[in-house]
Amino acid sequence: NARWTTEEQLLAVQAIRKYGRDFQAISDVIGNKSVVQVKNFFVNYRRRFNIDEVLQEWEAEHGK
């Protein structure tokens, strides 16, 4: 399903906090979204969920 429920959106943001840009890991956490759908989520929801800021926090924690 290409549509993202609110629950899936929140799950994705939590997974980004945990896995950074590991699209496969994020896809696995959500369970019903492909890697391509996760990559599209990054692009389409970047502003709404401040994904750049979430990634900066992840990179700071993981030394990337």
Rank of each mutant, 00 (worst) to 15 (best):
N1T: 15
N1F: 15
A2Y: 08
A2P: 11
A2L: 12
R3A: 10
R3H: 11
W4L: 08
W4K: 03
W4M: 04
W4H: 07
T5R: 02
T5W: 01
T6N: 12
T6H: 14
T6Y: 12
T6V: 13
E8A: 02
E8S: 04
E8Q: 06
Q9C: 15
Q9I: 08
L10E: 13
L10D: 12
L10G: 08
L10R: 12
L11P: 12
A12P: 03
A12M: 14
A12Y: 11
A12S: 01
A12E: 00
A12H: 09
V13Y: 04
Q14K: 11
Q14I: 05
Q14R: 14
A15V: 03
A15Q: 04
A15D: 00
I16C: 05
I16D: 00
I16G: 01
R17I: 02
R17L: 02
R17H: 04
K18N: 13
K18A: 05
Y19G: 00
Y19Q: 06
Y19L: 06
Y19D: 05
Y19A: 02
G20N: 01
G20W: 02
G20R: 02
G20E: 03
G20A: 00
G20Y: 00
G20H: 00
R21K: 15
R21Q: 09
R21F: 10
D22F: 02
D22M: 07
D22V: 01
D22H: 01
D22S: 03
D22W: 04
Q24A: 11
Q24I: 10
A25W: 02
I26W: 00
I26T: 01
S27R: 06
S27V: 11
S27D: 00
S27E: 03
S27I: 08
D28W: 09
D28H: 12
I30T: 05
I30N: 03
I30M: 06
G31C: 08
G31D: 02
G31H: 14
G31Y: 13
G31Q: 06
N32H: 01
N32T: 15
N32V: 07
N32W: 03
N32I: 10
N32C: 05
N32L: 03
K33E: 01
S34G: 06
S34C: 02
S34H: 06
S34A: 08
V35A: 11
V36K: 12
V36M: 12
V36H: 11
V38S: 00
V38M: 01
K39Q: 12
K39M: 05
K39T: 03
N40D: 14
F41I: 00
F41Q: 02
F41V: 01
F41T: 04
F42Y: 06
F42S: 03
V43W: 08
V43H: 07
V43I: 15
V43M: 07
N44M: 13
N44G: 09
N44T: 15
N44L: 10
R46T: 12
R46M: 01
R47S: 14
R48E: 15
R48D: 15
R48V: 13
R48G: 09
F49W: 15
F49K: 05
F49I: 12
F49T: 08
F49Y: 15
I51L: 15
I51P: 06
D52A: 07
D52E: 07
E53M: 12
V54A: 12
V54F: 05
V54E: 11
V54R: 09
V54Q: 07
L55C: 02
L55A: 05
L55Y: 09
L55R: 03
L55G: 07
L55I: 06
Q56L: 12
Q56F: 11
Q56V: 06
Q56K: 14
Q56H: 11
Q56W: 04
W58Q: 07
W58G: 08
W58K: 08
A60D: 08
A60F: 10
A60C: 10
A60E: 14
A60S: 13
A60I: 15
A60G: 10
E61Q: 08
E61I: 09
H62R: 12
H62K: 10
H62G: 11
K64W: 05
K64G: 13
K64N: 09
K64E: 15
